[in-house]
Write a protein that binds this DNA or RNA. Sequence first.
DNA 1: GTTTACTAACTAACTGGTTAGTTCATAATA
DNA 2: TATTATGAACTAACCAGTTAGTTAGTAAAC
Lengths: 194, 194
Amino acid sequence: MRNAEATKEKILEAAMAEFSAYGIAGARVDRIAKMAKCNKNMIYIYFENKEQLFSTVLEMHLTRVYEEFAFTPEDLPGYAARVFDFMMANPDLMRLMTWFTLEQKTEQLDQRKEAHNRKIAELAKAQEAGHIGTDFSPAFLLTSIMVLATAWMPTNPFGPSIDPASSGKTDELREAIMRAVGRLAGEPASTENR
Amino acid sequence: MRNAEATKEKILEAAMAEFSAYGIAGARVDRIAKMAKCNKNMIYIYFENKEQLFSTVLEMHLTRVYEEFAFTPEDLPGYAARVFDFMMANPDLMRLMTWFTLEQKTEQLDQRKEAHNRKIAELAKAQEAGHIGTDFSPAFLLTSIMVLATAWMPTNPFGPSIDPASSGKTDELREAIMRAVGRLAGEPASTENR
DNA sequence: GTTTACTAACTAACTGGTTAGTTCATAATA
DNA sequence: TATTATGAACTAACCAGTTAGTTAGTAAAC
C-alpha cells in the first residue's frame, strides 16, 4: 500500500506520542519509526531531522488549538473550564509544551505570542467595558487563569504527582477552578472593596 | 590537591547546573566532569551512576527547602510571596523539579508528599479555626497557591516565555500574587456569598 | 628523620552498546 | 519506462560506564 500522506500522518502521530513521553533529548527516532510502522528513512525524507519533526508536531497541534478555541473575555470562568477540559483530554499537548519550554527552543513562539497579545487586548477592552474586574492587569489575569486551569495536569510539580487524591475528582476541580477564576476576575462593583 | 569532600561538592554543583539546563536525558556526564574540573570516573565512584547523581542533587536541594521554609497557614499571601521570592532567586530548582515531573521518576517523592500532607492538615485546621476562608478545599488551595507563586518562572509555558513584558516587574508581580491568594483564601464571613 | 608499606584520590584511555542520519537496491505506480 | 515510495543494511559519532594504572598523603618501622 503506497500512500505518502497516510505515512506522514502515522509518523506525526507516533512522534506526538514519543516526544510527549520523552521530550526532544529523550525521544528515539527508531522508536517513532517502529510505532508508525514505517522505515526510519521516511522520517528523514518527510521531516528533515528530529528537531524539525518536533517543531512540526508542536506547531500542528498548537494551530489546531488556536483555531478551535474561542477566547471569551466576558466569561472567564467558562473559558478556564474549557481549557481545563481540553487539557485533561489532551495531556500529551501539555507535556509537549512543557518539554518545549524547558528545552528553550526560542524559535516558533511567534504564533503563541500573537495569540497571547490578542487575548490581553480583549481583556483590557472587557475591563474598560466593565464586564470584568480591574483589580488585576490583563496579563496577570491571563497567566493566572491558564495556570489555574492547567494546575492539575500531570506536568505540574505541585499537581497530581504530589496530590494523587485529586485524580478522579474532575468535576469538583472544574467547579472550583471556575469559582477561583471568578474571584480573580469578578466584577469589583458588586463587592465591597475598600 | 586531594580532597574528597571538595570534589564531591564540585560535582554536585556542576550536576545541578547541567541537569537543570538539560534534564536527565539531555545531561552529559562528560560535561559535568569537565565543569567540575574532575575526572569522569570520580562521578561513578562517588555517585553510582547518572540517575543516582540526579536523585542526589534533587534530594539535597529539596531537603534544604523543606528545612528552611516555614509554612504559615494563617498568612497565605505572605507564604506565596516567600515562595515567589525564593523561586525567582533559584530558577534552577524549579527547572529541576519540572524535569523530574516530566521524566516521571516515581521514586523519592515520599519526602515531598509528606510535607504536602502536613500542609494540607495545617490548612484544614486554619479553616476550622476561622483564620482562612472555607470556600476551597485545603488541597485545592495549596496547589493554587503554589501554582500562582510559580507562574512567572521560566518553566511555565504560560509565563514569561510567552509574556516577556512581565520580566523585571518583580515587585508588581509579588504584590498581585499576594492579592490573588488573599482573594482565594480570604475570610468568607466578610463577603456576601449566596 | 628517613625509608617502606599502604591507601585514598585521581587520571587517561578504552569499550561496547546506542543513536541520528545515509545509501542504495527494489517494488509499486503512472 | 520514469518516477516515486519503501525498507534493509550501513556508518560515523556519541556516550554511559569501566579498567588499569599513577600520584599524593600518611603512618608505622627502623
